[in-house]
Computed example of a mutant assay.
Amino acid sequence: MESVRLTEYARLPRAYGRLHLMHSTVDVHGRVHWLLTERAPAPGPAGPYEALVVTADRGEVDETHLSAVTLYSPWLDALPDGGFVLAEARSKVDADHVQVFDALGRPSWTFRVGDAIEHLLTDTSGALWVGYFDEGVYGDDPLSHPGLRRWSSTGEPLWSFSPGPGPLDMSDCLALNVHGTTAWACPYMHHPLIEVRADGSVRVRTTRVSRVGGVAVDGGRVAFVDFDDVLTYGLITEHTVEPEPGAARLLRPDGRALARRNMVCRGPRIHVRERGRTDWSVFDMARGDR
């Protein structure tokens, strides 16, 4: 099998290396953010603590100090007004688990979006796209049951997925790509490619893939990454994704196999960070990585 090496994308500056990494992501504009604290919060409900978001954007580094964070192990993404949203993946139905901070790092909103968050990605309008794993879809929290939802940055529901006949199901939102104000999802179990636009219109295309962990979309082409880091490619038609010949294994920039990793998918790019590391690398369809 052929291989494709990831390209180095961003590193946390050494000056922050002593801090504890809580979460890191790549936003809709390609900026990388690291959520850092002096030490890991103690297990259980967190008392208010201070956190630092370090942002890397085309070689420039900025800091945003967040005050009164109350989440034990939050996910992070950026908002277009310079603020940030934090969310706890697991939640109880009677407790807020999303915090929104303004551009000065001050808490401004808290609300709920449902239990069992698998993906949290903001778009260029500031809306939050949330994909849920199976314990949310089939759990006790009705907010999670659709499997994929879009929320405003103040907690208002904007759109939710509705199952349909045939392959239109959402047992687990395995892969989510948010680019501009459009989301692309690939759910378990039939693995259709679902395109959702900001106006709520939905297009569903059948595929022949399985075990999808990441998806990149570039015009009329798509690339899927499975749980074994194997890339496959397809051509988007009106109702299907037609497979293209060949496959390739995704490797680290140094040519070694990837360890356990997290992925953030944005348009033609799949950003990769190995667990326990702070640096990001990228696969970019638009650059001709195939």
Rank of each mutant, 00 (worst) to 15 (best):
A68F: 07
V69F: 03
V69S: 02
V69D: 03
L71H: 02
L71W: 13
Y72H: 10
P74H: 08
W75G: 11
W75V: 07
W75F: 14
L76H: 15
L76P: 09
A78W: 07
P80R: 06
P80I: 05
D81M: 03
D81G: 07
D81T: 06
G83C: 12
F84E: 04
F84S: 10
V85E: 01
V85Q: 03
A87V: 13
A87Q: 09
A87C: 14
A87Y: 07
E88M: 08
E88S: 11
E88H: 12
A89M: 09
R90L: 12
S91F: 06
S91E: 03
S91H: 06
K92L: 14
V93G: 09
D94M: 06
A95D: 08
D96V: 11
H97L: 04
V98E: 00
Q99S: 07
V100F: 06
V100L: 09
V100Q: 05
F101E: 05
A103Y: 13
L104K: 15
P107V: 10
P107H: 11
P107C: 11
S108W: 07
S108E: 15
W109V: 10
W109L: 09
W109K: 13
T110E: 14
F111K: 09
F111P: 03
V113A: 01
G114E: 00
G114Y: 01
A116N: 14
I117V: 01
I117K: 02
E118Q: 14
E118A: 14
E118R: 04
H119W: 05
L120K: 00
L120R: 00
L120V: 03
T122G: 11
T122R: 02
D123V: 03
D123Y: 06
T124N: 06
S125W: 11
S125V: 06
S125H: 12
A127I: 01
L128K: 00
G131P: 08
G131W: 00
G131C: 04
E135K: 03
E135Q: 11
E135I: 04
E135W: 03
E135D: 13
E135S: 05
E135N: 03
V137C: 08
V137I: 12
Y138R: 02
D140Q: 09
D141V: 02
P142I: 05
S144Q: 04
S144W: 00
H145N: 06
P146R: 05
L148E: 00
L148H: 07
R149V: 14
R150G: 02
S153Q: 11
S153E: 12
T154C: 10
T154W: 15
T154S: 13
T154Y: 14
E156W: 05
E156Y: 10
P157H: 02
P157R: 10
L158N: 08
L158C: 13
W159F: 05
W159K: 06
S160Y: 05
F161E: 01
F161S: 03
S162H: 11
P163Q: 05
G164R: 04
G164V: 04
G164T: 07
G164Q: 08
G164P: 08
G164Y: 06
P167Q: 12
D169L: 15
D169H: 15
M170R: 07
S171R: 15
S171V: 11
D172M: 04
